[in-house]
């Protein structure tokens, strides 16, 4: 297939960026979206043009490194997948594809389509963990966990921290990401001990870093490649309220 690509180019964090248009030919419908960009970059290098910077790592939908706002949607037009799992058969020959970086104040552009998502790590450092003494592995069934709780916790644990929720939200809110971490740990007995301090510290950090607040539009859930539910946000709101009332 032959395509026209409209790609955001920005030399560095400080530089001002603009869209560049590239024509690309003979792309296989079987190739993945990132492979298509690899082909483009090979071509650009041969033409002595700076290749397009974009993030990727595992290319199997599990690491959360790939991003890209493709034709107005995070991770492109397919449902419940990351950009690395998107295939060119989802497009038509002759299409124009607009590719933008995640847009959010706390996710500044590093170069072209690559954004700095360290803000998520900073939030995790505030409480996205449980404190345990190291030593030999504990007995498997020493703490019994109801299946339903374990399932909900595991569903929340599916979050790969790609930032599509922030990118999709009109307020650049990180609530879906933070709530996934809060629910993942807070639903399990091992996570309860630090539940109150965790939720307060992580939300304080989230606010400080400049993410917007949640207006419950549900855009995050609709675009999440891992189907994280907004019921996690309700869980986090509940935890936060209770933590403040008990104080």
């Amino acid at each position: 297939m032959n395509l026209t690509l409209k790609i955001w180019r920005q030399a560095s964090a400080k530089a001002s960026g603009k869209f560049e248009t590239y024509k690309i030919t003979d792309i296989s419908t079987e190739s993945s979206f990132l492979e298509m960009l690899d082909v483009l970059n090979d071509k650009l290098i041969k033409e002595n043009v700076d290749p397009v910077a974009y993030d990727h790592d595992c290319r199997e939908g599990i690491c959360g490194m790939c991003s890209l706002y493709i034709n107005g949607r995070p991770h492109g037009p397919d449902e419940d997948i990351t950009t690395c799992q998107l295939h060119m058969r989802k497009f038509k020959d002759g299409d124009t594809i607009t590719i933008e970086p995640w847009r959010a104040g706390p996710f500044p552009v590093i170069k072209d389509l690559a954004v700095d998502r360290n803000a998520f790590d900073k939030i995790l450092q505030e409480g996205g963990f449980i404190s345990v003494n190291t030593g030999s592995a504990p007995d498997a069934n020493a703490i019994l966990i109801p299946t339903q709780k374990a399932e909900l916790s595991m569903d929340a644990a599916a979050c790969i921290g790609c930032g599509a929720c922030v990118a999709a939200c009109k307020n650049s809110s990180a609530m879906l990401f933070v709530s996934a971490k809060v629910a993942n740990l807070g639903l399990l007995p091992q996570g309860r001990a630090e539940a109150a301090t965790r939720v307060k510290a992580m939300i304080a950090k989230m606010d400080e870093l400049g993410f917007g607040s949640c207006t419950n539009t549900g855009a995050c859930e609709a675009e999440c490649p891992k189907n994280i539910s907004i019921s996690n946000i309700a869980f986090m709101n509940r935890e936060f309220l209770c933590a403040n009332i008990k104080e």
Binding site: Y69, N71, G72, R73, T98, G105, P106, K170, N171, S173
Partner: peptide, 13 residues
């Protein structure tokens, strides 16, 4: 909330 996205998207479907 508006300040949280200084640069807007070109295309938003």
């Amino acid at each position: 909330n508006q300040a949280a996205r200084p640069v807007k998207y070109e295309v938003n479907t």
